[in-house]
């Protein structure tokens, strides 16, 4: 079992963050409701930009190229995630472990070269 006591500061931090953010959101709402007038109407609640009603849906269709960038990001993100256990266990795995990781990196470098050369990383 891992010694969890070293995570206590993070836990306390999380608890404080949760409490404070909840307070920041709900306190003004509660205070305004108690002190001010609270009578929403249909017109008041409509969304608007610059004083006009919104012209279109705020969500617009993304280009498929964002998706390609995100996929490439996931792949290299995973590669980086694999580096972490490798780095801390290198004294246990020795040369075999080192060579293993170098081959792995080489495979992905070839992929990177492919992505670069085919222009997948270029935007326009």
């Amino acid at each position: 079992m891992v010694d969890l006591s070293q995570y206590l500061p993070i836990l306390i931090f999380l608890a404080i963050a949760l409490a404070m953010s909840a307070a920041f959101v709900f306190l003004p709402m509660g205070v305004s409701r108690l002190t001010g007038t609270h009578n929403p109407t249909a017109n008041k609640l409509t969304e608007y930009e610059c004083g006009f009603p919104a012209f279109e849906d705020s969500r617009s269709q993304f280009d498929v190229r964002f998706y390609l960038v995100a996929i490439l990001f996931i792949i290299f993100d995973l590669e980086a995630a694999f580096l972490f256990p490798w780095a801390v266990s290198l004294d246990l795995t020795g040369w075999a472990g080192w060579v293993t990781m170098m081959i792995f990196l080489f495979e992905l470098i070839i992929g990177f070269a492919y992505a670069w050369k085919t222009g997948a990383l270029e935007w326009e």
């Binding site: 972490f84 256990p85 490798w86 801390v88 266990s89 290198l90 795995t93 472990g97 293993t100 990781m101």
Partner: peptide
């Protein structure tokens, strides 16, 4: 050992 070290010790050998 921490489990990250253990994972590494298995995964890369």
């Amino acid at each position: 050992r921490s489990n990250i070290e253990n994972i590494g010790a298995l995964l890369y050998s």
